[in-house]
Amino acid sequence: MAYYGGWILLVVLSIWAALIAFVWAVRSGQFSQQGRARFLPLIDAMPGQASSQEPLPPSRGGYVLVFILGLGAAGMLCAVILSLYHL
């Protein structure tokens, strides 16, 4: 039981930290101007970086990623089948 005190402290502290951040965010207008916020990283584009008007470069690397997704799906399917088999 002795540990309850510490845990309650942890829960209370975390909730307070989150609430303070949230209230600050609402008050300082962090949830307004969401449309403009979408563009914030783009200001860091390197000088000389090609613009979005340029044609897309050809690339096959994406197929490898799709293959990895397939591999992962197969692994998970095996686990589900085995767990159902042992039900």
Partner: peptide, 20 residues
């Protein structure tokens, strides 16, 4: 990821509200 993807694909983030 939220920082690099928009820059490399030269497009704004789809939705900032969703990200929050």
């Amino acid at each position: 990821a939220y920082y690099i993807i928009p820059i490399t694909c030269r497009a704004p983030l789809y939705s900032h509200s969703l990200s929050l």
